[in-house]
Write a protein that binds this DNA or RNA. Structure first.
Length: 422
RNA sequence: GGAGAUUUACCCAAGAGGUCGAAGGGGCUCCCCUGCUAAGGGAGUAGUCCGGGAAACUGGAGCGAGGGUUCAAAUCCCUCAAUCUCCGCCA
């Protein structure tokens, strides 16, 4: 969430910046509520100060065994007034909070102004799509022929958009998870976290999935828990309501989890293969950074994620999302897209974002440079490093051979114990 | 799932409806004292959030969380959460 004081003091600027996202946001309403809140707060606090003083008088009179009934009856009336103001205040504060939660982050000024993904800016293209010299197969066909996946039975035991991996398919998925984690731990110096797959409502709100996007999440019946849509949620919330030591920033975490998404708005899209699933694996990178250098940290986080594709030898490109395409909580996002022959285009495999203090304010994650200084909000960043299922798809498709076999990239062989899938 | 206990500041911990933003330890910071160390003596040590103010300063909130009772709540009542012990069940 944005800083309400900043919004009050810079209302027109905020509205102008948010207009680049397209869409309407209740900035005026938030400002109005905040001003009302301050006015009532001023009144009620005068009354409370009076009550505190007079109650002190009562205590003294009682100790001296004197009569205090006139003050008490007067304070009864004051108490009623306070109660009325407090009720108004909590109503306004609740409404203000909901309003602020529905206002997205201000896009960073380096973003191209644009409407949708057509206006994103390609930063670099690495590697070249291979010239096959034969008709390449999509990964779902290869996977079926090689016995890596069992979608009919996945449908039977669970439903659509779920996958049963088996044999070398299961091993490939597991190998990629280990390879990604090891790269980030040993090459890139991240600290590994293995969190719960369910989180409570406060965590989902802290990172911005709630209240606006509740229909995208799976809720666990008879509880107030949600299945994690990404490790970003549990890992970022590790430090919710904490004050971190500024000297320890940046804190760098990597985390493997399964991820669960309802894909509510995606009916009919990517129905075949591994691209869009209700349950998928992902290795996530999360950073808690100092505001002074969070944009450098965004560059290095993106490079860390790219390193996976480089080591695997997969062709990819990196784009900066435009103002109309950047996510709700993000100030700046780079998408990393891998070449997917069956789609004949690049497909998103990682999304690396700097949320600045937007998430940190929601989740109340602060730091102090030293003991004497005031706590400030950290900048939070995250990015996939990478989505595992889509990596499996990319490997199968990009490294397939004419005879239907798939060559395992060098970097994965020590995790796979075989050089090819046949 | 059942029963009981606990939750107070950096840590441990005392706390009666009014004198409590909170005794007492420990730790930490500074000072004194001894050749150094150990020991001893003294002083300091509530952070945080929301207001007002140019500032000095000042008002309010804050004892696990949220409600309630009361002129007044760490203290009484209710709901919830976490931790511990025992029982049950289980990988």
């Amino acid at each position: 969430m944005l800083d309400i004081r900043f919004v009050v003091d810079n209302k027109e600027f905020v509205k102008e910046q948010l207009s680049h996202r397209g869409g309407e946001y209740p900035v005026d309403k938030a400002v109005e509520l905040e001003l009302k809140r301050r006015a009532i707060l001023g009144e009620v606090e005068v009354l409370k100060a009076k009550r505190n003083k007079e109650s002190e008088q009562v205590a003294q009179l009682k100790r001296a065994k004197q009569d205090a009934s006139s003050i008490i009856s007067e304070m009864q009336k004051v108490g009623e007034q306070i109660k009325g103001f407090d009720a108004q205040l909590s109503e306004i504060e609740a409404e203000l909070k909901m309003t602020m939660l529905s206002i997205p982050n201000i896009p960073h000024n380096t973003l191209p102004v644009g409407k949708d993904d057509g206006d994103n800016q390609v930063m670099r293209v690495v590697g070249e799509p291979r010239n096959f010299g034969f008709e390449p197969k999509p990964h779902w066909e290869l996977g079926e022929q090689l016995g890596l996946f069992d979608w009919p039975r996945a449908g039977k035991i669970t439903g659509t958009r779920f996958t049963v991996y088996q044999g070398l398919g299961a091993r490939l998925e597991r190998a990629i998870i280990s390879f990604m984690l090891d790269t980030h731990i040993f090459d890139n110096s991240y600290f590994e976290i293995y969190p719960p797959y369910m989180v409570n409502r406060a965590s989902m709100t802290g990172t911005g999935q709630l209240p606006k996007f509740e229909e995208d999440a799976f809720a666990v019946k008879n509880t107030d828990y949600f299945l994690v849509p990404t490790a970003e949620v549990p890992v970022t919330n590790l430090h919710r309501d904490e004050v971190l030591d500024g000297a320890k920033l940046p804190i760098k975490y990597c985390s493997y989890t399964a991820c669960f998404r309802a894909e509510a708005g995606s009916a009919g899209r990517d129905t075949r293969g591994l691209i869009r699933q209700h349950q998928f694996n992902k290795v996530e990178l999360v950073k808690f950074a100092h505001p002074d250098n969070s944009y450098e940290e965004l560059e290095s986080l993106t490079n860390d994620a790219e390193k996976i594709l480089q080591k695997l030898g997969l062709p990819y490109r990196v784009s900066m999302l435009c103002t109309g395409d950047v996510g709700f909580s993000s100030a700046k996002t780079y998408d990393i897209e891998v070449w997917m022959p069956s789609y004949g285009r690049y497909v998103e495999i990682s999304s690396c974002s700097n949320f600045e203090d937007y998430q940190a304010r929601r989740a109340n994650i602060r730091f102090k440079d030293d003991k004497a200084s005031k706590p400030r909000f950290v900048h939070t960043l995250n990015g996939s490093g990478l989505a595992v299922g889509r990596t499996v798809a990319a490997i199968l498709e990009n490294f397939q051979n004419e005879d239907g076999t798939v060559t395992i990239p060098e970097a994965l062989r020590k995790y796979m114990y075989v050089d090819e899938i046949k």
